[in-house]
């Protein structure tokens, strides 16, 4: 009897505790409410929508009444004739972007770090950030202007050297190099900021000690600055690897044309054309899901790998 009343009492106090806690924190709950509603409507509802990858989705039936078809759409995609070229283009463009684009800001940061503080450094840094703040639409517009076969700046120069004008944006062999050069051009300055900030944390005394020991500035860059940057480099690399199937939708979408689809079509542009222009909702959702699963796996694996290799020193 006593035990029972004890339990009863405990239950009551728990419930009481809960309600008082709710009451005490009512303003905090109230503040969190708009964000919570946003999360449900704009993040979690579309996440649930991913289920349509396993259905033959139709607008009328919606997610509730469309028939379930298992992995049919994944099979269609993996065995379809588009799979090999699309995956090939995606991985090729993405890897080349990483290979050429990733080291550039690191090198630039080291170079900026060697400039003496002053107007020159400040102005050049500011100019180097500029393209980052522009959209790929405006940059694509600029590129059509300067790469134009009839009036463009680049062809102007080619003609000056006696070379025939080239219609760059319609030339298959030119497309990927144009992508890589233009994205380096756009992001090199801004991406260097993170490395510059990291270099600013380097203890001045280390450099001074090295100078006394007879190190040249070049040796200091190689043996002090560069190794010092390595942990930041590793983090940035992990972040990039997760996006290995992101070949850069905005850039490609604004630069490609039917003339260059063969070399330019990647997963994201394919999903767009298939889903938005072609209304193949289930199939394109399946491809999108495949892409994000690969992305998550890549992040987890690289993170684990770098952690192992660096003895737990570097990880996200």
């Amino acid at each position: 009897m006593r035990v029972q009343s004890g339990v009863h009492k405990l239950k009551k106090t728990r419930w009481e505790k809960f309600t008082t806690s709710c009451y005490q924190n009512k303003y905090l709950y109230l503040l969190a409410l708009p964000g919570f509603i946003w999360l449900v409507l704009f993040a979690y509802k579309p996440m649930l929508g991913v289920l349509m990858a396993f259905q033959d989705y139709n607008i009328i039936g919606g997610l509730w009444d469309s028939p379930w078809v298992g992995f049919k759409h994944f099979q269609t995609f993996f065995s379809g004739k588009d799979f090999a070229p699309i995956m090939g283009n995606t991985i090729k463009i993405s890897l080349l972007q990483l290979l050429f684009g990733f080291p550039m800001p690191i090198i630039l940061a080291i170079i900026f770090n060697e400039l003496r503080t002053g107007a020159y450094k400040k102005v050049t840094q500011t100019i180097s950030y500029l393209p980052h703040f522009l959209s790929w639409i405006t940059i694509a517009g600029m590129m059509t202007t300067i790469l134009s076969p009839s009036t463009g700046l680049v062809n102007n120069v080619l003609v000056m050297f006696g070379i025939e004008p080239i219609y760059f944006l319609a030339e298959k062999s030119m497309f990927v190099p144009i992508l890589i050069i233009s994205s380096i051009w756009k992001e090199i300055g801004w991406s260097s900021v993170i490395y510059l900030a990291s270099l600013a944390g380097l203890d001045q005394e280390v450099g001074e000690a090295a100078t006394i020991d007879g190190c040249t500035r070049f040796q200091k860059i190689i043996y002090i600055n560069f190794p010092y940057l390595m942990s930041t480099v590793a983090i940035m690399l992990i972040l990039r690897v997760g996006g290995i199937l992101n070949a850069g939708f905005d850039q490609i979408f604004n630069l490609y044309s039917p003339a260059t689809y063969d070399v330019a079509d990647v997963l994201d542009t394919y999903v767009y054309r298939l889903g938005i222009s072609g209304f193949q909702y289930s199939l394109s959702t399946a491809i999108g899901l495949f892409k994000s699963v690969v992305g998550v796996i890549m992040v987890v694996v690289t993170n684990w790998l770098t952690k192992r290799l660096s003895d737990g020193e570097v990880s996200l």
Binding site: S21, N25, L28, Y29, A32, G35, F36, L39, L41, F42, A43, Y44, K45, P46, M47, L48, G49, V50, M52, I59, D268, V271, Y272, G275, I276, Y281, S284, T285, G288, L289, K291, S292, V296, V299
Partner: peptide, 26 residues
């Protein structure tokens, strides 16, 4: 009290999104 739950809820969105079509239909 809901601090942990809500933080997790927003962190998940960093790794998973609905993708193009579900977002569009939403």
């Amino acid at each position: 009290p809901a601090r942990r739950f809500l933080t997790t809820m927003i962190m998940v969105t960093m790794f998973f999104t609905g993708g193009l079509i579900p977002t569009y239909l939403n």
